[in-house]
């Protein structure tokens, strides 16, 4: 098992683990805040996964510093990095909205337990 594979399994394994931890929080925690944290952890895992697929062995950052204009072959894939930037910002926006909703919910129901907030059903 060489280093590349170790890194790969490490990165992917961590991201899968993060996704599962996040899902666990979303599915079992009763507090709205913890659920939002769970969603953020899932997002984090997926962002890690996204970054991971751009990796190549001994890669460098995709930035051309003076004198290294022909280092293209060693550069990691820049696309996932650009994508992850977008994804992070979007995740941030969603989290902000979610937190504001939690504030509203707390004001309205005086509780943060998700199974006590079910006026709308059936």
């Amino acid at each position: 098992m060489d280093t590349t594979e170790l890194i790969r399994i490490g990165v992917y394994g961590t991201s899968i683990l993060l996704i599962l931890i996040g899902l666990y929080a979303v599915l079992t925690k009763r507090s709205l805040i913890k659920i939002i944290i769970g969603l953020s952890i899932i997002d984090g895992g997926i962002h890690l996964l996204l970054i991971g697929i751009g990796y190549i062995k001994d890669g460098t950052a995709p930035i051309f510093s003076p004198g290294s204009e022909n280092a293209v072959a060693r550069m990691v894939d820049p696309v996932p990095q650009a994508l992850v930037l977008t994804a992070i910002v979007i995740g941030f926006g969603v989290t902000a909205v979610a937190l504001s909703l939690v504030i509203r919910l707390y004001r309205h129901h005086n509780t943060l337990k998700i199974d006590e907030i079910k006026n709308l059903k059936w």
């Binding site: 995709p62 051309f64 820049p78 696309v79 650009a82 994508l83 977008t86």
Partner: peptide, 13 residues
């Protein structure tokens, strides 16, 4: 542009 990520973020995508 030196930073490819920036180029992608701002121009390509």
């Amino acid at each position: 542009t030196a930073n490819t990520v920036t180029a992608i973020v701002v121009n390509f995508r």
